[in-house]
Nucleic acid binder design. Sequence first.
RNA 1: GCCCGAGUGGCGGAAUGGUAGACGCGCUGGACUCAAAAUCCUGUGUCCUUAAAAGACGUGCCGGUUCGAUCCCGGCCUCGGGCACCA
Length: 911
Amino acid sequence: MEYNFREIEQKWQARWAAEHTFKAVEDASRPKYYVLDMFPYPSGAGLHVGHPLGYIASDIFSRYKRLQGFNVLHPMGYDAFGLPAEQYAIQTGQHPEVTTDKNVARYRQQLDRIGFSYDWERSFRTCDPDYFKWTQWAFLQMFGSWYDPEQNKARPITELIARFESTGYADVTPERWKAASEREKSDILMNYRIAYQGETSVNWCPELGTVLANDEVKDGLSVRGGFPVEQKKMTQWQLRVSAYAERLLDGLDRLDWTESLKEMQRNWIGKSYGTEVVFTVETGDKKTDVTIFTTRVDTIFGVTFMVLAPESELTQQLTTPGQEAAVAEYLAYVAKKTERERMAETKTVTGVFSGSYGINPLTGQKVPVWISEYVLAGYGTGAIMAVPAHDSRDYAFARKFDLPIVPIIEGCDVSEQSFDAKEGRMCNSGFLNGMDVKEAIPAAMDYVEAHGLGHRKTNYRLRDAIFSRQRYWGEPFPIYYKNGIPTPLPQEALPLTLPEIDQYKPTADGQPPLARAKDWTYDGWPLETSTMPGFAGSSAYYLRYMDPRNDRALVSPEANAYWRSVDLYIGGTEHATGHLIYSRFWNKFLYDLGYVCEDEPFRKLINQGMIQGRSNFVYRIVGTNTFVSAGLKEQYQTQEIHVDISLVRNDRLDLEGFRAWRPEFAQAEFVLENGEYICGWAVEKMSKSMYNVVNPDDICDSYGADTLRLYEMFLGPLEQSKPWDTKGIDGVHRFLRKFWRLFYDGDRFLVTDEEASAEDLKTLHKLIGKEQSDIENFSFNTTVSAFMIAVNDLTDRKVSKRAVLEPMVILLSPFAPHIAEELWQALGHTDSVAYAAFPVYHPEYTVENNCTYPVSFNGKMRFTVDLPKTLTPAQVQEQVLASEQTARYTDGKTVVKVIVVPGKIVNIVLK
RNA sequence: GCCCGAGUGGCGGAAUGGUAGACGCGCUGGACUCAAAAUCCUGUGUCCUUAAAAGACGUGCCGGUUCGAUCCCGGCCUCGGGCACCA
């Protein structure tokens, strides 16, 4: 029998499906392990070889854990609401669901070919009404909750209402509450709800006709589509994520995530300790208290002006009649800038004087109040005290508008630039004089608090999440407007499904597409017309897999108590500040209300690297139809053109294929080197437009899924980005065939029941040990190498013993499951290899048989020690110490470390 | 600007204080073959020299710790990623 991977892979994929081999069932008698991939958005382009990288890694880990006796939950689904399907619908008029169905079917087909051990019976899409019912349910829970700062968790809003009624809370007295109208009550509660409606400055993308979250905008352009984004004031649904800032930050310490990812989240949350100080501002005769936020209150003696954000409400109030025109002009200038322009021009300093003067509460000194876009309305109080000597932004501003610069740290030179470092000795600073900056900061804080001028304050950069999208293809809000007051739908009305509409674009007057629906009402009242954003459906999906068909709860308490949280989550870094923040927030919220039992959703997280494409180029001599080989291109003036990599093998161009590729190349002429056309190449993103996409289906066709899986792992460390290069794939394919040939010589089955020799056991147990530690460390590339070494070894020695091969089949099964199943069956087993047990590792077998151990001492002296064979390295160390101690260590100083390079050299080190 | 991470043969990469370059690709030579494919064997860091052996150098650069450094520490250079008027 030859290794016929096509037949084998089809056969076993069919059997796994028919026998429900990977169905996960709660089983209290076994330890659970939950392995999850970040589910994909099924795009029209299908999967390329980069997508399954993480899926293969998680599949290997799942299968490994299963062999270790764990009850593994390993599900997969689709993040199916989203912009591309909707954009396509707008262009073609086709319902996004149709596109989505088609894409999901294709994804499923592609995934199935790779032989994943998913429990597909738990699968769902975020656009399934049975699923988004629970997304809407969660929204209603958030709408019906507030964040109680005393208990430091979300509580039902009814508790807050009760407090308003009885004792009052914050600025709401019982009298005020009782006197309030329905609308006023609604407005008051909106200030507290976790899901609330409020006016805010949003990232508006005119091209897409919708708002975007901060993490959906990069460099002032939309992440999807790359369209310009501008700032716009709008009333939007929002989630009070900021209330969870401290807990989101705190929780990171307990997570097994990479430091860099945690760091990204810490930066995004952006905690900073500082002080809020009140400055009295005089506008003519009028006095206004303006609170500013600073982390460097120690520099307050160096304040020479103040700055307000243009969007701050104070700008109008603090503008004097004389400056009105200038300020209005400046505000108009700022307003018409897009986010992108604003970012592109961060070096340009702009601003306008308001006409008012603030009084420094510590010095009594009067300083001018300016308005500038470098101060952000959304952070702190939207107003700052400017210390140009010690802040580079204030410095640039002061230089531009010729404002005074007063240094307050001894010996610093501010003639060219500001001195931002938190070090040095204070001067020109009253009571702070002579202190070190590090002492001065708390001293100044204490002073400000003691004199009632302000108080310590912790600020976070993390903003509330904008939760509305002016779009069709998303979850409708379970909200209707009764007398204009947002009112939740009763839970029985869920799921609220999308209405049919004739067109998917916004209405002529700028309403979201849902406004086109004929009868978009509830109980006679209009329903909300915006829909939820992409992250709504992906925020709690991992909980749903625990109990996917439950129609009474998102997840039953029993299923949740068993599966708890995701033990291993694998996905890309691009979700670091989006999905992974929202999901943690969402989970903590559900935890507060007692719906889930763990406060963090993803215990361990691995970011797989991106697989980039390897593009090929041809070089056309400018103005001709002649193409010159890469080695000779310097001799001509050429134009670089992407060529489809399917026309290239090992950088050599298939000339006929190239002529047939495009009509304009049909008559192409070539300048060859050594009779061949050599293409240029570059590593780029894998994408259609660069003709460098490699489809996993093609690899499965020519090499098989097992080879694809092994090769993707062999390519390099999982977490590293690397280009796809098909060159090396023959090597791993050869390895599988070699392994096969240990079982079969043509049709002859070679496996014998001979006893394993010491050498055989060494080969086997080295591999077991290596695989075990490598998998735990996600170092899959070295495991594949270890396999190759073992198989080469057995091939060299012509070993085909069941005692060695049977465990090796189990070891191989997480990586190359199809061939493993086939060989497992050939060895006489009727059950799937997935039910086998991982072989037990005996390190003592791996010790060299050689009885003589060379020892080097202090790197200079060498001698040998005779020791019995089959000692563990630890035992060897002991023996060496015991035999040499008295001779060597007469100074009484003890040995700190003994290093054994297994089997070769034993080295004793003195410290 | 700030914060992470990484620099090792022709290439992907191994080795985290102990024989640097495992394993694979590519390349060299050979066996089998009418031929090709497939398969197998051989060599393969650089330099010098040689019939061979041996030797010197070698993990971005400079310095330090150590008997010993790709690995630890300090400084620099380069590349990649993230954040970016966040006061």
